[in-house]
Amino acid sequence: MFLSIQKIEQTVHHIDSLQNPQNPHNAMVLGIYRNKVNSIVYSVYTKKTYGEYWDTVDNKKIPKRLWTPEMKAYYEQKAKEAPKPPYIYKITVVGWLFVLSAIALFGYLIYDSVKPPLPKSETYVAMEQVPSEGDTYFGRYEIYKEKGTPIGMEGNFGWFKVLKVEGDVYHLATSIEMSKSHKPKEQLNNIDFNTETLPPVKLTEQTGYNIRFKSDDGLTEIYITDKK
């Protein structure tokens, strides 16, 4: 973040009553200053002032370590008389834009956390229901001859029907019309099913978008994407 510090002169006092600790014959002036810090999002005036004694002949600043007790007391007196800063803290236009953006973001996050969830579609709710006997689904099955290799794998798209459920074991039958390639579900038979089922499978994954079955030996997998 861009940051700059300005030295703002508050007052200047010409001094005749104090002696210059470096060059007794040279006159001094006391300058009282305040810093102003500027950034992209804010500007700040420091509350506390600081003083500098300058040799007016040599035009050099007198180090603070050389200040006499009288010089310190004189500074303390004049520092109290210094004008107050016009403000202490001020947000810039960019800063206000940042603040408003932050408020809008937090407001959205709060709203998003308390707003009611969108209603689930009928299809989503249907897919979330635990499969039971008589349910009809659309998807794809894959039967492998050897686990881990696609060589000789049998795969088809179409409709399936749950013919029997034994605990966590499902027996699914395929439609009499299955397709090697994907086709719209409306084009395939979803009424007539084979009497023989695929190898027994278990439910391994279920969401509102897909259901997955898999056999214990890992050779048969069924991927469901729709429910009738």
Results as ranks from 00 to 15, higher is better:
residue 66 L to N: 04
residue 67 W to I: 04
residue 67 W to Q: 07
residue 67 W to S: 08
residue 68 T to I: 10
residue 69 P to H: 08
residue 69 P to K: 01
residue 69 P to L: 03
residue 72 K to L: 14
residue 74 Y to G: 02
residue 74 Y to E: 07
residue 75 Y to L: 06
residue 75 Y to Q: 09
residue 76 E to R: 09
residue 78 K to P: 00
residue 79 A to K: 10
residue 79 A to C: 04
residue 80 K to I: 00
residue 80 K to Q: 13
residue 83 P to C: 00
residue 83 P to S: 07
residue 88 I to C: 11
residue 88 I to V: 14
residue 88 I to G: 10
residue 88 I to P: 04
residue 88 I to K: 07
residue 89 Y to S: 02
residue 89 Y to L: 15
residue 90 K to S: 14
residue 90 K to H: 03
residue 90 K to G: 01
residue 91 I to D: 09
residue 91 I to Q: 07
residue 93 V to E: 12
residue 94 V to Q: 13
residue 95 G to N: 14
residue 96 W to T: 08
residue 97 L to T: 10
residue 98 F to K: 04
residue 99 V to K: 05
residue 100 L to I: 15
residue 102 A to T: 13
residue 103 I to E: 00
residue 104 A to W: 06
residue 105 L to S: 10
residue 105 L to M: 11
residue 106 F to R: 00
residue 108 Y to V: 09
residue 109 L to A: 14
residue 109 L to C: 03
residue 109 L to T: 13
residue 110 I to D: 02
residue 110 I to F: 11
residue 110 I to H: 08
residue 111 Y to W: 14
residue 113 S to F: 12
residue 113 S to T: 08
residue 115 K to W: 01
residue 116 P to Y: 01
residue 117 P to Y: 04
residue 117 P to Q: 06
residue 117 P to G: 06
residue 118 L to S: 15
residue 118 L to I: 12
residue 118 L to P: 08
residue 118 L to Q: 14
residue 120 K to P: 03
residue 120 K to W: 10
residue 120 K to V: 11
residue 122 E to D: 14
residue 123 T to G: 13
residue 123 T to S: 15
residue 123 T to F: 12
residue 124 Y to C: 04
residue 125 V to R: 12
residue 126 A to E: 10
residue 126 A to W: 01
residue 127 M to N: 07
residue 129 Q to G: 05
residue 129 Q to P: 08
residue 129 Q to Y: 06
residue 129 Q to I: 14
residue 129 Q to F: 07
residue 130 V to E: 15
residue 130 V to F: 13
residue 130 V to D: 13
residue 131 P to D: 09
residue 131 P to I: 04
residue 131 P to H: 03
residue 132 S to V: 15
residue 133 E to A: 11
residue 133 E to H: 00
residue 134 G to F: 05
residue 136 T to W: 04
residue 136 T to F: 07
residue 138 F to T: 01
residue 140 R to N: 05
residue 141 Y to P: 02
residue 142 E to C: 07
residue 143 I to V: 09
residue 143 I to K: 10
residue 145 K to A: 11
residue 146 E to H: 05
residue 147 K to N: 06
residue 149 T to P: 08
residue 150 P to C: 02
residue 153 M to G: 03
residue 154 E to T: 11
residue 155 G to S: 13
residue 156 N to G: 05
residue 156 N to A: 13
residue 156 N to F: 12
residue 159 W to F: 01
residue 159 W to I: 02
residue 161 K to H: 00
residue 162 V to N: 03
residue 163 L to M: 10
residue 164 K to L: 11
residue 165 V to F: 10
residue 166 E to T: 13
residue 166 E to W: 00
residue 168 D to G: 13
residue 169 V to A: 09
residue 170 Y to G: 03
residue 171 H to R: 11
residue 174 T to R: 14
residue 175 S to E: 02
residue 175 S to Y: 00
residue 175 S to M: 01
residue 176 I to Y: 08
residue 176 I to V: 14
residue 177 E to D: 12
residue 177 E to Q: 02
residue 177 E to C: 06
residue 178 M to G: 08
residue 178 M to K: 10
residue 178 M to A: 09
residue 179 S to Y: 03
residue 179 S to E: 11
residue 180 K to G: 00
residue 181 S to K: 05
residue 182 H to D: 08
residue 182 H to E: 14
residue 184 P to I: 01
residue 185 K to V: 08
residue 186 E to W: 06
residue 187 Q to V: 10
residue 187 Q to G: 05
residue 188 L to E: 03
residue 189 N to L: 04
residue 190 N to C: 06
residue 191 I to D: 12
residue 191 I to C: 07
residue 191 I to P: 05
residue 191 I to K: 14
residue 193 F to M: 01
residue 193 F to E: 09
residue 193 F to R: 12
